[in-house]
C-alpha cells in the first residue's frame, strides 16, 4: 500500500468518525437528559473540531511550528476568559 492510499484511508476514517459523532449528538438531543444534553452536545462539537484541526487541517504534522502550537490554545484561552468574565458580570449583577 502506498502512502497515498494510507492517507486516503485516514481521511475517510476521520470523515466516518465525524458522521458517527453527528449521529450521536442528534440522538442524544432526542433523549431527555435535562441539563446534561447541552454538555454532551458541546463535548461532541469539541471532539469534532479537534479531529478536523488535527487531521484535515494538519495540525498533527505541524509539530515543528512551536508558535502555532501556542497560538491556537492561546486564542481559545482568550475566548474562554472573555466568556468567564462576561458570566461573572451577568450572573452576579
Amino acid at each position: 500500500m502506498t502512502t497515498k492510499d494510507i492517507e486516503v484511508k485516514t481521511y475517510i476514517f476521520i470523515w466516518l468518525s465525524l458522521v458517527v459523532l453527528t449521529g450521536v449528538a442528534v440522538s442524544v438531543a432526542g433523549m431527555d437528559l435535562a441539563g446534561w444534553s447541552m454538555a454532551v452536545a458541546l463535548v461532541i462539537a469539541f471532539l469534532k473540531s479537534g479531529l478536523i484541526l488535527l487531521y484535515f487541517m494538519h495540525l498533527k504534522e505541524e509539530k515543528g511550528s512551536r508558535l502555532l502550537r501556542w497560538m491556537i490554545p492561546g486564542v481559545l484561552a482568550i475566548l474562554i476568559l472573555f466568556i468567564g468574565i462576561t458570566f461573572l458580570d451577568v450572573a452576579f449583577r
Partner: peptide
C-alpha cells in the same frame, strides 16, 4: 482548504446551539 475547514468548524458549533436545544 484551511479556510473551508474553519467554516466547517464554526457550523459544528452553530448546529447544536441552534438545532439541538432540548
Amino acid at each position: 482548504g484551511l479556510y473551508w475547514h474553519l467554516v466547517d468548524i464554526v457550523w459544528i458549533f452553530l448546529f447544536p446551539l441552534f438545532y439541538l436545544i432540548t
